[in-house]
């Protein structure tokens, strides 16, 4: 069994007194794709955002490889919070794709993708463009390199966002409801790209409502409810042989 790349232990998160994560334990091994399901308000997006420190956890710990996300262990028991600049360095190993794409509208598609390799990985301009064009070809958008994001459809924007995240070659990819803002007919063009990524051995943590994608592409499905992980297992175990009435109720309502 391969090593866990992501190790979340006893993760807690409060928003002004309200506990939205109540002690989450989750591991994701290298090459594994884990889908997180759950009703809105179950804490699944918050969990994902804690992994790359967009939210500051209230307790517990998150390890990506040998990095304690957001913190540094001092001598003995002391743990010290990192500065934003130090967290930025840690985040380079964790790519993220957002529900609303969040492409930079003042940059072309190509600039959106080349900026990371150029400024962070210090690639030469030619190398950065070559890498970006390869990634754009992989998501089927090589011909839109010089378009601005607002000139693209939602599905196209999300595929560019995936290429942008991949350009830094992160060890772990986070997807926060990547198809929820799309028109129904554009969902599959994005989930197809994600399924191909999963099949190619990427390590992915995906918050999604696309049960079809979760069943087909995920190695493991996690069902969250009320800030805890209620149930997890292979897609077959969770979808077809769920042990929890709450999971079965959620699946029944979502599939209708």
């Amino acid at each position: 069994m391969t090593l866990p790349l992501l190790r979340i232990s006893e993760l807690r998160k409060q928003f002004s007194g309200v506990e939205v994560l109540k002690g989450i334990n989750l591991e994701v091994r290298i090459g594994e794709t884990v889908a997180i399901l759950g009703a809105s308000g179950s804490g699944k997006s918050t969990l994902l955002r804690c992994v790359n420190c967009l939210e500051v956890a209230s307790g517990g710990s998150i390890w990506v490889g040998d990095e304690l996300m957001g913190y540094r262990q001092g001598s003995g028991e002391t743990v010290r919070r990192l500065t934003e600049s130090q967290i930025a360095v840690q985040r380079r190993n964790v790519g993220m794709v957002f529900q609303n794409f969040n492409l930079f509208p003042h940059w072309t598609v190509l600039q959106n993708i080349t900026d990371g390799p150029r400024s962070i990985l210090k690639l030469s301009k030619a190398d950065a463009i070559e890498r970006s064009m390869t990634l754009l070809a992989r998501v089927g958008l090589a011909d839109r390199a010089n378009a601005y994001p607002r000139q693209l459809s939602g599905g196209q924007q999300q595929r560019v966002a995936i290429a942008r995240a991949l350009a830094l070659e992160p060890a772990l990819l986070l997807f926060d409801e990547p198809t929820s803002a799309l028109d129904p007919e554009n969902v599959s063009e994005v989930t197809d790209v994600m399924a191909a990524l999963a099949a190619s051995g990427a390590t992915m943590l995906v918050v999604t409502h696309e049960l079809g994608f979760a069943r087909a592409a995920a190695d493991r499905v996690v069902f969250m409810d009320g800030g805890v992980i209620l149930e997890q297992g292979s897609p077959t175990e969770v979808f077809d042989h769920s042990q929890q009435p709450r999971t079965r109720e959620f699946l029944r309502k979502t599939l209708v």
Binding site: S85, F98, I120
Partner: peptide, 18 residues
């Protein structure tokens, strides 16, 4: 400026000044 823009930039590992 939409907060999502800042989050996306942070998620890409950009430092605050950038």
């Amino acid at each position: 400026v939409d907060e999502g823009q800042l989050e996306a930039a942070q998620a890409l590992g950009m430092k605050p000044v950038r």
